[in-house]
Simulated assay, not measured.
Amino acid sequence: MKGLKWYDKLMFFANSVAAVLLLLSYLLPFVSPSKFTLLSVLSLGVPILIIINILFLVYWLLKVKRQLLLSFIVLLLGYSYVFSLYKFTSSKKIEDSGNFKVMNYNVRLFNLYDWLPNENVASDIKQFVDTTQPDVLCIQEYKNHEDFSLPDYYKHEELTDAGLKVGQVIYSKFPIVDAGSVDFKDTANNAIYVDIKKGSDTLRVYNIHLQSSKINPEVEELQKESSEHLFNKVEETFLTQEMQVKQFLAHKAKCTYKTVISGDLNNTAYSYIYSQLKGEAVDAFDEAGNGFGKTYNLKFFPLRIDFIFADPSISVNGFKTYSDTKLSDHFPIEATLKI
């Protein structure tokens, strides 16, 4: 610290705090929320911590100061974190006759409460699906709507909310030979599944929607909430998600087929929840995506909370985020797979 001016000492103190927090976040995949809730909440801020540490690194580099080593070493130790935030490679795209496309989309009830100034969201989403033609489509926050019909697909739905009759649905161009659900306790969230027949193979596809904190992430709305109230909401959500994932994995363990897990986790790729759910599977974005992979339409923040995980024996030959499709608060994602 010798030779630093007072404002640089202040900068280095802030740098140290950001570096320590990022270092602590490396433990997130291994520590369950039920054991250390405060640490698990940190998962939401990891993208910001990575960006802040990169900015500090650039700051000290431009000033030619050895303080750059702090963020450099911390970022180096977590290089997999840094590169999971932004994929610098171009999207993988392998053409193969055995390819099939799995799409995930949280449609936010087809704009039931007029969040968007668009009265034709359901029909616009139908047109989008008709154009992209996914072979399997997993939808969260689904509600039956007269303007959304896919007659060329087999369908399995589970509407869990007794009042609104909303839930999850899976559409498949391949025949569905079995279907069911994993009903989470004390919540309208759940996971559903279909066993589909593709040629001589049977594949299980899960559509999972984990508990939401129901916090409006826009800055203007966050400022209205007390920090204690926000923390309590997130804490309760993560504990509920942990129980939901345990219940889901117990169900999945009984499956003898190759599996694809698609859904809205309401959590990030830096969390214990993500780590447990992914297991040995392949994150399709990590394998074939590029850029930030942002799936939630939040200003100035690259939040990726929607995922497609493929069994290790399934090839991921492509991945796409439809970030121009602004018909919900989520963006649809699509993985090109081959058994």
Results as ranks from 00 to 15, higher is better:
residue 1 M to L: 13
residue 4 L to D: 06
residue 7 Y to G: 01
residue 12 F to H: 13
residue 12 F to K: 09
residue 14 A to N: 12
residue 14 A to R: 00
residue 21 L to Y: 02
residue 30 F to K: 11
residue 36 F to E: 08
residue 43 S to G: 12
residue 51 I to N: 00
residue 55 L to T: 01
residue 66 R to Q: 05
residue 67 Q to I: 02
residue 70 L to A: 03
residue 76 L to D: 02
residue 79 Y to L: 11
residue 84 S to I: 03
residue 88 F to G: 11
residue 94 I to G: 01
residue 97 S to N: 15
residue 102 V to R: 04
residue 106 N to C: 11
residue 109 L to V: 10
residue 111 N to C: 12
residue 118 N to R: 14
residue 120 N to A: 12
residue 134 P to G: 08
residue 135 D to R: 03
residue 138 C to P: 08
residue 143 K to P: 00
residue 149 S to R: 13
residue 150 L to K: 07
residue 152 D to Y: 11
residue 152 D to V: 01
residue 156 H to V: 02
residue 158 E to V: 13
residue 166 V to D: 10
residue 167 G to S: 08
residue 174 F to N: 07
residue 175 P to D: 10
residue 175 P to T: 07
residue 177 V to I: 15
residue 179 A to S: 15
residue 186 D to S: 13
residue 187 T to E: 03
residue 187 T to F: 01
residue 188 A to V: 13
residue 189 N to E: 09
residue 196 I to W: 04
residue 209 H to D: 10
residue 214 K to C: 00
residue 214 K to M: 14
residue 215 I to V: 15
residue 217 P to A: 07
residue 219 V to L: 15
residue 219 V to I: 10
residue 231 F to Q: 14
residue 250 A to T: 11
residue 253 A to W: 00
residue 255 C to V: 14
residue 255 C to N: 14
residue 264 D to L: 07
residue 269 A to N: 10
residue 276 Q to W: 01
residue 279 G to R: 06
residue 281 A to F: 07
residue 286 D to I: 00
residue 292 F to R: 05
residue 294 K to N: 04
residue 299 K to A: 15
residue 304 R to D: 05
residue 305 I to G: 03
residue 305 I to S: 02
residue 310 A to H: 10
residue 312 P to M: 01
residue 312 P to W: 04
residue 312 P to K: 12
residue 317 N to Y: 06
residue 322 Y to P: 02
residue 332 P to C: 07
residue 333 I to Q: 07
residue 335 A to L: 02
residue 339 I to R: 04
